[in-house]
């Protein structure tokens, strides 16, 4: 085998590999779609963040505007401190509302920002005061069962065939 021919083939081989890696990054991965340029950091305190993870998206009106940078714990207030980085191009009012939402019923969790009406805008190092916790599925279920149970208590005092039938159909539709 001539050396030049080997060089040629190895060149092709390496070029193919580079192309594959580039293709993976561009076409398969999210290198292009979620490019965040310069960012500023804002923190928010939550009583419960559910399953939020670092690097989860921060969305406003459904558009990704940033990412969760860091999740900490405040030992004094027993709250979770979520630091998010937001793209410098987007400015939000000081009274912006931060929620933790779940994409779909069982999907990943993300931070949703709802803009308020304040004149001043959030700057790096600011804190979002208005927050709403993640909805924890177990909590919802227990609340649901609790309310059903108390309903049943109430129904017992005024028994009627109709209401018991209602209950059974409702339980049948319950999401578990």
């Amino acid at each position: 085998m001539e050396r030049t021919k080997i060089d040629l083939w190895v060149g092709i081989f390496v070029a193919l590999g580079a192309a594959a890696l580039l293709g993976l990054a561009m076409k398969v991965g999210n290198l292009t779609s979620n490019k965040i340029g310069d960012t500023y950091h804002v923190s928010a305190a939550f009583e419960n963040i559910g399953g939020l993870k670092p690097n989860a998206p921060v969305k406003s009106a459904g558009v990704v505007v940033g990412r969760v940078a860091e999740i900490g714990f405040d030992a004094k207030t027993y709250e979770a401190i979520v630091t998010i980085k937001i793209d410098k191009r987007y400015e939000f009012p000081k009274d912006t509302f931060a929620n933790i939402y779940t994409a779909g019923l069982l999907g990943e969790q993300y931070v949703g920002l709802e803009a308020g009406g304040d004149e001043d805008v959030l700057k790096s190092g600011d804190k979002i005061t208005q927050t709403q916790d993640a909805i924890v599925l177990e909590k919802m279920i227990s609340q649901f069962l609790y309310s059903k149970a108390s309903e049943a208590e109430a129904d017992k005092s005024a028994p009627s065939a109709e209401s018991t039938k209602d209950k059974s159909t409702e339980l049948g539709d319950a999401p578990f």
Binding site: L21, L24, V28, N30, N55
Partner: peptide, 19 residues
């Protein structure tokens, strides 16, 4: 097909780790 893929495959956590 492509957009779901791009939204869920992370360059650092998935592709770089694979490499």
């Amino acid at each position: 097909f492509w957009s779901q893929m791009q939204a869920n495959v992370d360059v650092r956590a998935d592709i770089i780790n694979g490499v």
